[in-house]
């Protein structure tokens, strides 16, 4: 066997090992957790605005715990494996959304006319940008969900009834529906 052919075989072996490492657990529960958080929080913003703010400020903690639990399940060995990709994803989602919220709150502090619902709109638009970049780097569903959030955030004040509920339905559907279709496709493939 030539050296190049042997190298090709070795690389195929390494590729298989890397694929086994990158085999991710089903992230559907993670998307359901975040979709529930967004939907309940946004519905409350319409129906009980005082509760909505408190809910959004506190309920991200259990949602984040669910995300952590499912994303970092052991994928083969007896321990979770943290790779450079995991760190990048953590920095993107945790850091990106955290910074978007801080930037939104900061803007409300220096620009008083952004306080109240307008401040919420700014935060939604900034999170939409983080979602879009998540689509560029991690998961394609965010490529359209990010811009949809930006448009939704900008047009909140133009929607006559239950605007936050409409946006919550859009975001929750955008998070959960692609996973449902993916699951259905995977099951059909497994059954075939």
């Amino acid at each position: 066997m030539t050296d190049v052919a042997q190298i090709g075989e070795d690389l195929a072996f390494v590729k298989q090992a890397v694929r086994r490492r990158d085999r991710r657990p089903d992230l559907f529960p993670v998307y359901v957790a975040w979709a529930s958080y967004v939907l309940v929080g946004y519905v409350l913003l319409d129906l009980r605005p005082d509760w909505g703010g408190t809910f959004l400020a506190l309920a991200w903690i259990p949602a984040a715990l669910v995300a952590w639990r499912f994303r970092h399940r052991p994928t083969g060995g007896d321990e979770p494996l943290y790779t450079a990709d995991d760190r990048r994803a953590g920095l993107h989602w945790g850091g990106g959304i955290g910074l978007a919220i801080l930037a939104g709150l900061g803007l409300q502090f220096v620009l008083p006319h952004l306080r109240g619902p307008a401040g919420g709109q700014v935060i939604v638009v900034l999170i939409g940008v983080v979602y879009f970049l998540g689509g560029v780097h991690f998961d394609r569903r965010f490529l359209w969900l990010g811009p949809a959030m930006i448009v939704g955030g900008l047009s909140i004040s133009a929607i006559p009834t239950l605007p936050w509920t409409c946006l919550g339905l859009l975001v929750a559907g955008g998070l959960v529906l692609p996973s449902l279709f993916k699951r259905g496709g995977a099951r059909a493939q497994a059954a075939a």
Partner: peptide
């Protein structure tokens, strides 16, 4: 190939337990 595979896997992780490396490399 086992040594190369182990090095590639370790190059993007902080550390990996022996049992996990064994499972990944089979």
């Amino acid at each position: 190939r086992s040594r190369l595979g182990a090095m590639v896997l370790l190059s993007t992780a902080d550390s990996i337990a022996f049992s996990h490396l064994r499972d990944l490399l089979q």
